[in-house]
Amino acid sequence: MPPRSDREKERLIEQMCAFIPHCVLQGIRLEKVCGEEVTLRLPYRPELIGNPDTGVIHSGVITVLLDQTLGTAGICCDRVETNITPTLDLRIDHLGVAAAGRDILACAKVYKVTRRVLFVEGFAYCESALQPIARATGSWVQMPELNLDELLRTSQAGVQQQ
């Protein structure tokens, strides 16, 4: 299996973000693909505030973004086919607070592949990737019988009708 180019990965991820209603709602979008590493962006919005006294984004929003980003990392991994991968577990360490008013970015990469499981790690940050506000690890189950490319192609018509 030849590795997919960054551009192919970007196309698949953009399609996937457009296919997931909650990603569309939150404006979660592709920032960049760099080899096996993916970065997604979540724009700041007042609806996402967790502490009204400070204006800081809810930690649950970071959970959504990290779940999405780590789950997407499978598409960028050159050792696996693009299949649907449900989350098995996710663990998040909150290292800092997102600055009020700033977008949040999250970056992730698969670090181990077995026949059935992808082990993924990643982190979220605001201004600098050198100062993460949260770090995450998780595992995703590979479902080779559910091909993502095929699903996106067959469901495209359905999504457009909605």
Partner: peptide, 14 residues
């Protein structure tokens, strides 16, 4: 996941 459909795992977590 609109095919099932299922609620976003991150939202369940949040």
């Amino acid at each position: 996941n609109p095919t099932l459909p299922a609620i976003h795992g991150g939202v369940v977590g949040a």
